[in-house]
Amino acid sequence: MPTVGLFNKEGNKVGDIELSENVFGVEIKAYAVHQVVVALLANKRQGNQSAKTRSEVSGGGIKPWRQKGTGRARQGSIRAPQWIHGGIVFAPKPRDYRISVPKSMRRVAMKSALTSKVVENEIIVLESLDIETPKTKEMVKMLAALKTKKALIVVAESNENVYKSLRNIEGVSVIPANNLNVYDILKYDNFIITKDAVSKIEEVYA
Rank of each mutant, 00 (worst) to 15 (best):
K141G: 06
N190Q: 09
K44S: 01
R107Q: 10
Y97C: 04
Q35N: 13
S128A: 15
S100W: 12
K150R: 10
Q46T: 15
N168W: 07
V4K: 01
R95Y: 10
V174Q: 01
N181Q: 02
F7T: 00
K9M: 07
R54C: 01
K135G: 09
V119K: 15
Q46L: 10
Y188E: 05
F191W: 05
G76E: 10
K195T: 05
M1K: 12
N181H: 09
K103H: 15
F90D: 12
D96M: 13
G61F: 02
M142C: 11
P92K: 00
K147E: 09
M139W: 02
G60P: 14
K103Q: 14
A39H: 12
Q67D: 06
G61T: 13
V140H: 05
F24M: 04
P94I: 11
T194L: 06
E27L: 06
R45W: 11
N179R: 09
V36Y: 05
M142D: 02
F7S: 01
S128T: 14
D189A: 12
Y188G: 09
I17M: 04
K164S: 11
Q82M: 11
S116Y: 06
D184S: 12
R66A: 04
D196P: 08
L19W: 07
A42V: 05
D189H: 14
I193M: 06
Q75K: 15
N179E: 08
K63N: 05
G60R: 06
V125F: 07
Q49Y: 15
K135V: 08
F90H: 10
S20R: 05
I28T: 09
R98Y: 04
